[in-house]
Design a protein around this nucleic acid. Structure first.
Length: 628
RNA sequence: GGACUCGUUGCAUAGCUUGGAUAGUGCGAACGCUUGCGGAGCGUUAGGUCGCCGGUUCGAAUCCGGUCGGGUCCGCCA
């Protein structure tokens, strides 16, 4: 039982009181109180104020008096605050025992929102013609963190990465290799994906700008790519797979993994489109336009004042958005699966099996990667298109909100960083651009962070062997990067600054990880294995109670994060845990107290904190070293 | 022209879904804390018309309408 148990007890008792007064159902709140107002607060008096025609304060007093007649084991006393709130003070003789013993269990924090249903989370989905930049990383970390949270909330999560391996962006690097003489091997020391993005892609598009006659070559390559058996398509397949392998290395390094890779080229060749096209016509969700500017096209009618959206051009080819419709339907399991699956060539670091779709029937098996629900992580610039998809899927699937677009604001470059990259933006932040070479590669950011943390660790521990320093620096850099990507609201722009964004103090991952290291050292120095068979009533200091209370809120936070698909909730929780522990650490001594019983109780609390923090950080994909 | 989104202290942000009590945090600034389980830490102080106007309400940072400012989207491109 966690803090939730006292909330339940209070809610039940208040309901009984209302029954006794024959007051019909009122949706009052019972939630953890703000500091200084007891442990639990309810707004019940405000809600009753109107129908009872009394002041909230008077109602609170009345309820407070009545409450004492009901059996309660976890509430010590109630208080009617002059403001009208009804506040409850927990029995801190009993609650610590409940919370701390729960925290030692494997299933601590588990909540059942998903009811074991399946949910698909699609994220990453980058063209395989360049290295991942810091903007892609936001998408990837959001997606990965959300899938971890959903998993904890009892969903069966399937993580997909949709590889956009056809279309212009890929055509451009193929043009570079085949027509502009770029070597197929990168210069020594450069990763292939960096080479394709930084050199081949950027310089090829530069050439178009200087000489528009080259566009012809581009068009021809694009056409050749459509035919799977063409030499160009086979070559492109080789190149994109190689870039993809590099991109996956970057993701794996950041503790991100997947269940399946889907390829756009295969979706196009699978015939899924014609099936969904028929279905759309049948359900009259699209209409053929006989006149006007869209004459000869199939369109989706715009809602309200929005423009109609062309789905099939007058020449019979499908538009960009049309390619997303069959994929969305496939993810929801609305179409017969045309794919077979085979294992990806390389194993993921966490040994999770990675499948990839294939149209090749040989050496492959069938699998099910569809879900009852689908979460698609794409930045907010795609909100309009995603809304169309969401609306369509809503008409296909009966479950409400089966298709969810999880949007987020993009990562921009600060004006200083843009300047470093050669663009004067007049003091304003600016959007990244792969085509213009205006971006910061994720690998570079990781490298810079790692170098910095390595130096810091070395300074603190001159005696430490290099492999351990390496490991710590890795955890801290991954932690920092991941934490920075999710600690704030999804719809706030992150203006990335190469020099400023790498702080290791304050509200950062290293602060939290450091706190964990402190706890680890206490346990290590004690030389004991903490047991939960201790006297919890000895934990009376306010900083102890505060820490226990936060530990007990773990499952409430997970519920909040999962319901709102909000990774920052967990980030804040980790920070709050760390703050509470540091305050405890400062005020209360654990070891060498000369009082074995008290020492054991406190050790148990320290261990409980450590376990909880590790679990919470795990949801963020962050590891906490025991020393740093 | 239409739509979406953000606006909280010098800067960066939490709280807004579900209206109530003292608007929480970090950076930066000033001061203080190590013969203490690790100072990537802790504490104290200063700093706030919650963009602006209006409405709903006993009560609005929170809900509604308007308005201003920043960002984004609106192609038979992808």
């Amino acid at each position: 039982m966690t803090f939730q148990s006292i909330l339940d007890e209070i809610e039940n008792n208040l309901k009984k009181i209302l029954d006794g007064l024959s007051i019909p159902d009122v949706k009052f709140s019972v939630e953890p109180a703000k500091p200084g107002f007891g442990d639990v607060s309810s707004n019940i008096s405000f809600l009753l104020s109107k129908q009872l025609k009394k002041k909230p304060k008077d109602i609170a007093e009345m309820l407070s008096e009545k409450y004492s007649h009901y059996s309660n084991t976890l509430v010590l006393k109630t208080e009617a605050h002059p403001s009208g709130y009804l506040n409850f003070f927990a029995n801190w003789e009993k609650l610590p025992q409940l919370i701390l013993s729960e925290s030692y269990l494997d299933e601590f924090g588990d909540v059942d929102i998903g009811k074991d249903s399946t949910i698909v989370v699609e994220h990453t989905s980058v063209n395989p013609n360049k290295a991942l930049h810091i903007g892609h990383i936001r998408n990837i970390i959001i997606g990965d963190t959300v899938s971890r949270i959903l998993n904890k909330a009892n969903y069966k999560v399937k993580v997909l990465n949709y590889v956009d391996d056809s279309g212009l962006q890929v055509a451009d690097i193929i043009v570079g290799f085949n027509h502009f003489g770029f070597n197929q091997e990168p210069p020594a020391g450069k990763k292939f994906d960096h080479y394709c993005g930084d050199d081949v892609y950027v310089k090829t598009t530069e050439k178009y700008e200087k000489d528009s006659s080259l566009e012809e070559i581009r068009k021809n390559v694009l056409k050749e790519l459509e035919d799977a058996d063409s030499e160009t398509a086979k070559f492109a397949d080789k190149i994109t797979k190689r870039v993809l392998a590099n991109q996956l290395e970057t993701c794996w390094n950041l503790a991100v993994s997947y269940d399946c890779l889907n390829f756009e080229s295969q979706i196009i060749r699978s015939g899924l489109w014609s099936k969904i096209f028929e279905k759309l016509k049948e359900m009259t969700l699209i209409e053929f336009e006989n006149e006007g500017k869209n004459a000869g096209c199939w369109v989706i009618r715009g809602e309200n004042k929005e423009e109609d959206k062309v789905i099939v051009r007058s020449n019979g080819t499908a538009t960009y958005i049309a390619k997303d419709i069959p994929y969305a339907a496939w993810k929801l399991g609305l179409l017969e699966d045309p794919f077979n699956y085979k294992k990806y060539e390389k194993e993921q670091p966490n040994s999770r099996i990675l499948w990839q779709s294939t149209l090749d029937k040989a050496n492959s098996v069938s699998q099910d990667f569809s879900g009852d629900k689908v979460v698609t992580v794409i930045d907010s610039r795609q909100a309009r298109l995603q809304k169309i998809i969401t609306t369509l899927m809503g008409k296909f699937k009966s479950i409400p909100d089966a298709y969810i677009h999880l949007g987020y604001e993009s990562v921009t470059l600060s004006s200083d960083t843009a300047k470093i990259l050669g663009l004067d933006t007049d003091g304003k932040q600016t959007q990244m651009s792969g085509r213009k070479g205006l971006y910061v590669n994720a690998d570079s950011v990781y490298d810079i962070l790692k170098e910095k943390t390595k130096q810091e660790t070395q300074k603190r521990h001159p005696e430490m062997i290099s492999s351990e320093i390496e490991k710590i620096a890795h955890y801290v850099s991954v932690g920092t990067l991941r934490y920075e990507m999710i600690k704030q609201d999804l719809d706030k722009i992150i203006a990335f600054d190469l020099t400023k964004s790498l702080s290791l103090e304050g509200d950062t991952a290293p602060y939290i990880q450091y706190t964990h290291a402190r706890a680890s050292r206490i346990l290590e120095n004690s030389g004991l294995t903490p047991s939960i068979d201790v006297d919890f009533s000895l934990l009376k200091e306010s900083s102890e109670i505060a820490l226990i209370k936060i530990i007990g809120l773990f499952d409430l936070q997970i519920r909040d994060a999962a319901n709102n698909l909000s990774p920052k909730v967990i980030a804040r929780y980790c920070h709050d845990l760390a703050v509470a522990f540091n305050s405890f650490y400062e005020k209360v001594k654990v070891l060498e107290l000369g009082d074995e019983k008290l020492e054991n109780s406190r050790l148990c609390l320290v261990n409980s904190f450590k376990i909880t923090l590790e679990k919470a950080l795990d949801l963020l994909g962050i590891m906490a070293p025991d020393r740093m």
